[in-house]
Simulated assay, not measured.
Amino acid sequence: MNRCTALILTTLLSPLAVPAHAAPVTVPHDRGTLTLPAPARRVVALEYSFVDTLLALGVRPVGAALGTQGGDRGAPPYLRGRVVGVVTTGSRAQPSLEGVAALRPDLILADTLVHRDVAPALGRLAPTAVFPSRRADLEQLNEQTLLIGRLVGREAAARQLLADQKSLITKARAFARKGAPAFVAGVVTPTSFTAHTAGSFAGSFLEAVGRRNQLPVRDGQTQYELSLEGLVALQPQTLVLFTAPDETPVTASWAKNPLWQKLPAVKRGRVYTFNRDDWTRGRGPTALKLMLAQTIESRFLQDAAPGSAFKYGP
């Protein structure tokens, strides 16, 4: 086989290659319906869940919101090795329109909440699909995996990802102790505790694997802040904290308050901590595999005292 023939075959067999006879693709999204003349080959992803999903589908984005402007933390560590060389188009909160335009994308993936003000401008640069990534639950994000798969010509791969995920969740549920008390979960930063209800990604995921979320969506908000007093009022039997290893969470100061010591979860020794880079920032198929493993390893599903790697120690 000569070099020219090998190059042609490589191109044809590439998951990003789109045959000349490719049919148009139509998907619904939060700003209407998007139709592409053929599956997208040059994709810019403005949320980490989109980056995670594309990579899981075997598609490398040409650009992504991986910057740290506006106080963002950049790509979650579990993704960093896989996005080396992907052009940074600003941060999620502050995408660079000039940077996006320079990449000549044929598809932009944007977030309903974060990019609501710039979505019209993005749409003038290239076809743009807008999905509720930041405030979506597990079911909505799975729907997005399928739609993104369709947009990039990888729908069969997306369906396989979801089938594999369903199988893993079923296996994880076997570890869940029946009758275990409900949990309260929240992202904890140096200044705030943001509760993740049953309508959030992490909150709905933990329900999917067999534990009950104590908090329903409140006034349409899937996530909302709680004070220490607000947390005490809930009297949680189990507490799940999503923290960052390079930050000191606000709960470190709360732990010095007698009110914290009176929390049933603290008394029971059922305060679990997970890395929020894995749990609340990626929100894609790859992150979900990490999360599934950690729910078992931490002994959260079993409602047993957390192992040392997941035990909260302020």
Rank of each mutant, 00 (worst) to 15 (best):
I108V: 08
R124E: 15
S298N: 13
A93S: 14
T191A: 11
D246Y: 11
Q261M: 11
E143H: 15
A233W: 13
S96E: 10
S200G: 03
T295N: 07
A304Q: 12
L16I: 15
I169F: 00
F205S: 00
T243N: 14
H21I: 14
N213Y: 13
Y48D: 09
L241C: 12
A174T: 12
R3F: 05
W254E: 02
A56I: 06
Y272P: 06
P314A: 12
A244Q: 04
Q140T: 12
T273S: 14
A156H: 12
D219P: 03
F274Q: 02
R73P: 09
L234S: 05
L263I: 04
Q69D: 12
R31A: 14
A198K: 15
A6G: 04
G284L: 03
T53L: 04
W279A: 10
Y272Q: 02
V114S: 05
R124C: 11
V18L: 02
P39S: 12
V209F: 03
V62P: 11
V250F: 00
A185W: 02
E47P: 02
A198G: 13
P76Q: 00
D111G: 08
A233L: 10
G149T: 03
G282N: 04
G58R: 08
S133G: 07
Q144N: 15
P314C: 10
V43F: 01
T238Y: 10
R116E: 11
V118M: 03
G58H: 09
L55C: 10
R41N: 14
Q69Y: 11
L162P: 01
T222R: 15
G81L: 09
D72E: 09
A202C: 13
G81F: 01
L138A: 02
R104W: 05
M291W: 00
T11H: 14
D106Q: 01
L107N: 03
E229H: 03
A252N: 12
L113C: 08
D106R: 06
G210Q: 04
A101F: 07
L16A: 14
T295I: 10
